[in-house]
């Protein structure tokens, strides 16, 4: 019985951790959207900033991956 409660808590925690991925989605969308609006204002400078955009995407996406990892750890490793 006690194990079941722990397991329930772990699963609820995993579900809550997954909300963090929504934040990462917002962040990635923000990065790309701002890149696009900047690129449309000044298309000649857009090409040089693609690498920067991908770095920004990587950084904000990493946090979403971290929350996914926490969810996985709660589900499978706790």
């Amino acid at each position: 019985m006690e194990g079941d409660v722990v397991q329930m808590g772990a699963y609820i925690g995993a579900g809550l951790a997954c909300t963090g991925m929504g934040g990462a989605a917002v962040g990635v969308g923000h990065v790309v959207g701002n890149y696009l609006s900047g690129a449309l204002r000044n298309p000649s400078a857009a090409g040089g900033q693609v690498a920067t955009m991908f770095i920004g995407i990587a950084f904000s996406e990493a946090l979403g991956i971290f929350s996914f990892l926490v969810a996985l750890l709660l589900m499978f490793a706790v």
Binding site: G3, V6, Q7, A10, M75, F76, V78
Partner: peptide, 8 residues
């Protein structure tokens, strides 16, 4: 425990 979860 995780195994139990999977089997559950």
């Amino acid at each position: 425990m995780a195994t139990e979860a999977a089997h559950g």
